[in-house]
Each structure stands twice: as structure tokens, then as C-alpha cells.
Computed example of a mutant assay.
Amino acid sequence: MSPALDEAALRAVLARPRLTRVLAALEAPGEETRLVGGAVRDALLGRRVEDIDLATTLLPEEVVARARATGLKPVPTGIAHGTVTVVAEGEPFEVTTLREDIETDGRHAVVRFGRDFAQDAARRDFTINALSATPDGRIHDTVGGLADLAAGRVRFIGEARQRIREDYLRVLRFFRFHARYGAGAPDAEGLSAAIAARDGLALLSRERVRGNC
């Protein structure tokens, strides 16, 4: 049976005081920050949400400045790639500037910062991981993630083989996510692409494989 999506649970996550404090700190004219990825996915499924990721049009240095100005603690955990961890009362929130891939080699990606949420969503792995929500609870879905989530379908965004060539770790993630979120048989295109690309796993470091299994 396909799960019913729980928008009330998503709104409850967005109403968490520490998260609202971070969102308020990042609010600025002409800029936008959204809840993205796994937090949106799991909230809609009524699952427990612990790690919260945000995507923003603000550049990393602006995130740092706004966090400091409002009494929050910014930690430049991956600032070269656009990620700043903003700590509110001991709780960390990963805030990442919107990105676009310039080139990939199956292990690493060269990115540039962007301002388009749809392009940022298109560079993610699976449709169910590309959902975003504004602070007022509006859900944005540009890749068909809501339908896939409701159907229990783990599907690559775009052409599966190309997405795997961008990062071979996605072979393992496909099976892991299907085991957790899928219903029935794995997506046929994704399964075929994962099997065809299995030799690419040898290019990955043991640390990356261990950290994502």
C-alpha cells in the first residue's frame, strides 16, 4: 500500500523553534532559504526527522555573517562547497548555497554557486531527495518526487546511467534507499544502470563507501 503524505508533519518540523530561529536569521530581501532533501522526505512519510538541511540563495559568507549577527554559531564545515553549519542552542543545521555541477569524474564534482532551486534539485540523486519546502510549508517538486514518494518508488533524476557516472557511490545508495523507502521491485532503469556501473565502485575510497552504507 502506498503511504499517504503527511503535510501536517512537515509543517510541524518547520515550526520547531530552533529551526524558525535559523530561518529568520537567513531571511533577507531578494533571498530565499528552504528546507530540503531528507527532512522533507521523511516528514511527509511521518518518519522521525533529526538531521535538517537547508538550501539558500545566500552565499556562504553571507550565511556566516547573518548567523553571527543574530547570536547563532556558524561553523564553516564545507564552506568551499557552500556549506555552513549553523548551530542554534546546540542543534546543528547544515545550510548550503544553491549549486550547479560544472564537471564530475565519478568521485568528485566541481560546482559553482547558483540561485535556481530547480537546477539545484536536478543535480541531486533521487527524485524523493529533491523536494524542498518554504518556511510557510509550501512544497516544491520539479522532478516528480511527490508521486514517487507516494508510490514507494526510488528513481534517479533524469537518465540513471548518467547520474551514476557523476558519482559511483549512487550505486550503493540506490539499493540502500530502495530497501528503506521502496515498495515492490526496484525501478527497472535504476537497477539496470546500477548493475552496468558496478565496476565503478572500485574507484571509491573505503571511507566514502563505509560512510554511506
Score class of each variant (00 low, 15 high):
D120H: 15
G145T: 09
R99F: 07
F177E: 12
R99Y: 09
P135M: 03
G144E: 04
R163L: 01
I128S: 07
G144S: 09
V111G: 01
L169K: 02
R123G: 00
R176Q: 14
R163F: 02
A121T: 08
L131K: 06
R161M: 06
A122G: 14
G106A: 12
A151I: 11
T97M: 04
A130D: 11
I102L: 15
L149M: 08
F126Q: 08
R99S: 07
Q119I: 01
A150L: 05
E166K: 14
N129T: 14
T97R: 13
F156P: 05
H178P: 00
T127L: 10
H108K: 13
A133K: 10
E100F: 03
A160D: 03
D167K: 03
D101S: 03
D101N: 12
D105V: 04
A147P: 08
D101E: 12
R124G: 02
R155N: 00
T97H: 12
Q119D: 12
R107Q: 13
R176V: 12
D141K: 12
L169P: 06
T142I: 00
F174D: 03
A147L: 05
D120C: 05
F174M: 02
D105W: 12
R123D: 01
R115N: 11
F117M: 10
I139E: 02
T104K: 05
F177A: 11
A133E: 04
R138P: 00
R153Q: 12
G137Q: 06
G114W: 14
V171L: 09
F117I: 00
F117W: 10
R173D: 01
T96K: 06
G114M: 11
I139W: 09
D116A: 06
R176S: 08
R170K: 05
F174H: 01
D116Q: 07
A133S: 08
